[in-house]
Design a protein around this nucleic acid. Sequence first.
DNA 1: TGATTGTTTGCTCCA
DNA 2: CAAACAATCA
Length: 813
Amino acid sequence: MDFLKGLNPRQREAVTYDGGPLLILAGAGSGKTRVITHRIAYLIDARGVPSFAIVAMTFTNKAAGEMRDRVAGLLAGRHPIAGLTVSTFHSYCVRLLRRDGDSLAGLRPGFTRDFTIYDEEDQLALVKAVYRQLGLTEKSFMQYRAALGRISHAKSHKRGPEEMSRDAKEPVISKLAVVYNEYENRLRQANALDFDDLLLEAVRLLQHDDRLRAAYNERIQHVLVDEYQDTNRSQYELMRLLSEKRRNVCVVGDEDQSIYSWRGADIRNILDFEQDFKDAVTIRLEQNYRSTKNILEAASALVAHNTERKGKWLWTEAGAGARITVYEAHDSENEALWIADTIDRLAHTSPGDRAAILYRTNFQSRQIEEALRRYGLRYKVVGGFSFYQRAEIKDMLAFLKAALAPGDDVSLLRIINTPARGIGKTTIEQIEQQARLKRVSVWAAIESLIAEGQLPPRADAALRGFMNMMAALRALAASKPIHELMRGIAESTGYLDMLKADDSPDSESRIENVHELIHAAAEAAERGETAADFLDHAALISDADSVDEKAEVSLLTVHNAKGLEFPIVFIAGLEDGLFPHIRSLDSPGMMEEERRLCYVAMTRAEKRLFMSWAHYRRRFGGGPSEPAIPSRFLREVPQSLIERAGAGPGEVDLDADRMLVRDTVRKNMFTGKTYNSLENIAEFFQSRGLKPPAGPGMAPAGAPAAMPPPRAAGSPGVRAPEVPGLGMPGAQGGRPQAMQQAVPPAKPRTAAPKPPKRLQPGRVGSTIEHARYGRGTVVRREGEGEDAKLTVSFPGYGLKKLIAKYAGIKTEE
DNA sequence: TGATTGTTTGCTCCA
DNA sequence: CAAACAATCA
């Protein structure tokens, strides 16, 4: 097969290059994914590289899945790709540690391969616990998040608590070092790794275990890294360690799209690649196949304001296309309505074109969602609050974690009194004190407290009950498949009953979520996954994985939009302080990153690009509107490419008829987020039948037939590192072909038009008559009775705010 | 002592 | 409009 057909000369060069380190500078829309997938296919087919000798790293599970599918498609009927590894850095490291991590115990006391993973929430809980222990408060010391951020930063720069303490110039930092130290101690004691550790410890393992590293290098012939501009130090090191022998690294990136410095991404990785690899060859892909000329020019002009670049100028053969629309809204609500209105209009003029609404921060989505719902538009929200971040899911998983690993203090404390079982603050304090005193886990502390018999009778009984319950769960965990275990947890702990007894509006969806989790567990069990595998997936799932590219309207942050493209793109909230974000205003480096972020946003658009800002923006629900000024980025776009929209502040010509609201969809019912994540989870588990290597004490789980013989590793007598398991994606290779096409149709759980309920006078959605403006539709109502403030949309006049009792309005049926 | 209700904050982007 | 905390009630 000719994998070079349809590629331009530069792309072809990138696909076929065979001389060691290769840096592909791939501008936005230049066919980057195409090049990587073709290169992998080419290596396998034309160069005879076995698929298990190729490792490709991506940023999200979704990108990995797509890449794998595309390679499979290219090689269909010619080569099996069962052994091919396409993975995110994080899941790669988890698998590495779970499979071959034993020797890490020498470096990290207490480490075993059945470690647990602490996500950000767990990390925060840990920091809080440390604060409590040290008698610190957020007010008196430092915000939890800030502390965690600094700790994480120090960690990823390989600076331990001792160094932090030694170099501390201020007392705050010395104290922080103490927190840091205790934080690390507790992680170790619980045999838990946080997200930083996953990468760091994998790197340490490879650095120190020469035999393991050699085995991996023996096997791996090519390492490819996507989104290289967003790799951090650990990821860079991992890449080097895995490619030490053959030095066949191929990295693909675009320094103009580096947007993760806050997560430790080091832009120098890409800027200095040619120095780090002296014999590296750089190939530039500068032809853009995505956007119109106007969009491309505008974006390029914007990013040209940056200094930290290698410099490239994208070009396209596409036509100029429409100009970029910039809309100046009176307030954020008006902005949202304008977006909804424009999308509604575009649905007629360019049917079938998907639209994306991009924003800098998640909180912006709320108002936009509301506007879309008023227009009865279907939409999907990506991220924000994913399934696995939901309290009920985290609770359920905490039960599971605590049952599997009694040393997991964070999980245990999370559910020790959920549902309420009479273990209150004082008791918990007593337990924590005991744990500190004896330097044992919370579980062990409870045991010893009970044994000592010092507890008040009520607490004693409650704790005994809790211990028995957990012991029963543990027995269940040992004997039952994961979904029965989850069901057992939901029922025997009283968790489900607690939800059922709750009459708050969203308890129903919580129950649904719990069932969904059990359902997901059942599917996992069918694939032969263990509870530990299940937890790994839950920890490593990402928001971007839930992007549904077929959705007509998508709402997502710019970060989540990386790598995606849409015919129509809106960028909302272009105000100084929001985008660029306020925290970047006094730092040139951070400002450049914000600019790159805006560049990423703009270059997502294929045909039409809309940018908007609002004079007033409300940050919290009922809070005050704060004044804003337009983003500097709007000024950095050549004005000749811009077309202004709207009659002026507050004067959107919103067609009242279309505003006839299909009903106020009950809040929380279809917040997008909920249904979004429900689909997400089922899809995720279905499409990613990842089956990591067996846990400790178990034989490697049945490997697919396609798996190459494991003899590549080690000499007889020594426990051979099971490299093949990493050179291959587990059961994914054996995934039935049918499943790849049969993506389950998304359930239309959208805000479907409901039969309008009777509209009451002045209610949102009703029509009123005003003496001066005529008929209009009530768009928003604040307050009650005759004091209520109504926001009304009058055709020809735009949005007006009226006080019910003064406006002299008549209500119509 | 623990559970419930009221009050006050609030600030990212993510694997 | 949340969550996180303080001040109540049982």
